[in-house]
Design a protein around this nucleic acid. Structure first.
Lengths: 224, 224
DNA sequence: GTCTATAGGTTGATAGAC
DNA sequence: GTCTATCAACCTATAGAC
């Protein structure tokens, strides 16, 4: 199902490797960079402050990442890769499965949006990220297709209305989550409350896509 | 309906004003800034290149906008303000109205996303934009509420299922549009094709929110 | 309001010792 | 792999003439 080649870095931040154990300088630099990105934004990230926060010298930063662009590229690809394959097991109920599926997507978006935004600050970073996404067939469509695939399966089982467009529903569901996460991150955390949260959207959606008169039954009566 | 105070700048890029007619330097600077933002990103925008592209001296840039942050703030608020109140008239059919409504929103998002992203490159710009949005009660929730308000009205008329959550639907619909616009702008224009477009989402949605057996009829039979 | 010239301060990056 | 020391380039911002 997953056409992704084996990529460096899995769900873990620090993987074991051949060779001498790392002293942690590199990781400290990456972590400090992420912090600065969040607090000050990409334009205000200087190699000098990265070094200071990471507790290393500026020379170390360049030793590990060649240049500033290399550093930011590493930060971006690192974050993107970290959660590339999350796929929670399907639950018994449609509502529960969608809940688990979208909860994971929301957490993922919340984590990667910061670096996706950082990539927008520089055309070189942006095209680099675009290439990376293309190479790995990665991006939001993965989430949309994940939702759509699940819905399609349930359509065959009769738990979901047969006449819905799974991709359209997937785009709407993921879109609503993306919208909320983006508002929280691009304006301020409380701003996302101006828009329904995942729980409410999910509830409204399940109501829409569930057959009017229960699974599989073609009868005209029965409460909804 | 619109609690927005009168703001400078309407739908037009150049409004007439009291006082001496502008020589256009200011506008040229703003336009050049937008171009650079698109092509190179906020981190690569220098006052020097802005001046060169606008065909003015660097001194002029600082004369008009005080400093770099002031320039970017002006670019952001200018773009945000330019289309603050679009409200197409309701059409006869639900599908048509939603089409007109969301088409406007898509155009708007496509225009402002670039500056919203630029604001993320610098914490000072970000909080400035956040304050601006708050002061004007502006943001994506406006779009969500616009859709929700229309749906609620149609629920009373029986053209839309009475048991749906208008806000949830609004969030999903706007979210799916936002997702597509964001993919096109943050990765590359073609990348948004990985996800259903507005037309397809709209079609799928109308199917979901339209009463199973036509407007107003409460009868138990009828095909679904 | 616009220009030229220039100052002052950062910043990314390198060299070389340990 | 990490540090210190150092630079050259660049970029924001100001001063003052027109």
């Amino acid at each position: 199902m997953s056409p992704i080649p084996h990529l460096p870095g899995g769900a873990d931040a620090h993987r074991p490797r051949r060779g001498r154990p790392r002293s942690g300088g590199r990781e400290a630099i990456l972590a400090a960079s992420l912090d600065i990105l969040r607090e000050r934004g990409a334009s205000r990230l200087t190699t000098r402050e990265v070094a200071t926060r990471a507790g290393v010298s500026e020379g170390s930063v360049f030793y590990h990442f060649t240049d500033r662009t290399g550093l930011l590229t590493a930060v971006i690809e690192d974050s993107l890769t970290s959660l590339m394959d999350v796929n929670p097991a399907a639950q018994a109920e449609v509502a529960e499965t969608l809940e688990a599926l979208t909860a994971g997507m929301e957490r993922f978006l919340d984590k990667v949006l910061i670096v996706v935004i950082a990539a927008q600050s520089d055309a070189e970073l942006r095209t680099g990220m675009a290439d990376f996404l293309r190479s790995n067939d990665f991006g939001p469509h993965r989430g949309v297709n994940g939702i759509a695939g699940y819905l399609r399966a349930q359509q065959r089982g009769g738990l979901v209305r047969a006449d819905i467009d799974p991709e359209a529903v997937g785009a709407m569901l993921l879109g609503s989550i993306f919208l909320r996460v983006a508002m929280g991150q691009m304006v301020d955390p409380a701003y996302s409350d101006n828009v329904p949260d995942r729980g409410r959207v999910l509830k409204g959606l399940v109501q829409l896509i569930t057959p009017p008169d229960g699974p599989r039954s073609g009868g005209p009566s029965g409460r909804r």
